[in-house]
């Protein structure tokens, strides 16, 4: 295997791991939100924010993947390939795990909306707490890619 293959693996991982995490996270909160919505369709607005929140990790992964792609040249050495792969890991893994947990927090937030719609934003704030670590992962991935 040459460096290109390894680098592609890294770039792909950033996109698909964070993407899977976001998909699972939205899946969790989406089901909950649909349940709340069946009782009270007027809460769509507040629930909408909660449902899309775990989606951001997928985009962070996507961005990291694009940046890594920019580093891939036809004669990439094996070592540089590994470097790119490892640089992609922070957002790939932090994105994957945090999106799932954010989905759970958002689902709890959807329950909050069911009972106290006016407090929706507080549920959103808790979810943002979880997302912080995906943001930190993305920052490190970007910096590490800059060093390759």
């Amino acid at each position: 295997m040459d460096g290109v293959g390894i680098a592609i693996a890294g770039s792909a991982m950033a996109a698909f791991l964070a993407g899977i995490g976001s998909a699972i996270g939205i899946g969790i909160v989406g089901q909950q939100a649909a349940g709340v919505l069946s009782e009270d369709p007027e809460k769509f607005g507040s629930l909408f924010i909660l449902v899309v929140l775990p989606g951001t990790q997928g985009f962070y992964g996507f961005l990291a993947s694009m940046l890594a792609m920019g580093k891939i040249t036809p004669n990439l050495t094996m070592i540089d390939g590994w470097r790119i792969l490892f640089a992609c890991l922070p957002i790939a893994i932090a994105g994957f795990v945090s999106a799932i947990h954010q989905g759970k927090v958002c689902a709890a937030g959807a329950n909050l909306v069911a009972k106290r719609a006016d407090q929706a934003m507080k549920g959103v704030m808790y979810a943002v707490m979880v997302e912080t670590y995906a943001v930190l992962g993305l920052i490190i991935t970007i910096f590490l890619l800059a060093k390759v």
């Binding site: 985009f59 996507f62 694009m66 943001v135 930190l136 920052i139 970007i142």
Partner: peptide, 20 residues
């Protein structure tokens, strides 16, 4: 202090995805 770095990350996400 570190928390404010998110501003940079979010700014880059917008620019990066727009570029893509």
């Amino acid at each position: 202090f570190l928390s404010y770095i998110r501003l940079m990350a979010l700014g880059l996400v917008t620019a990066g995805i727009a570029g893509a």
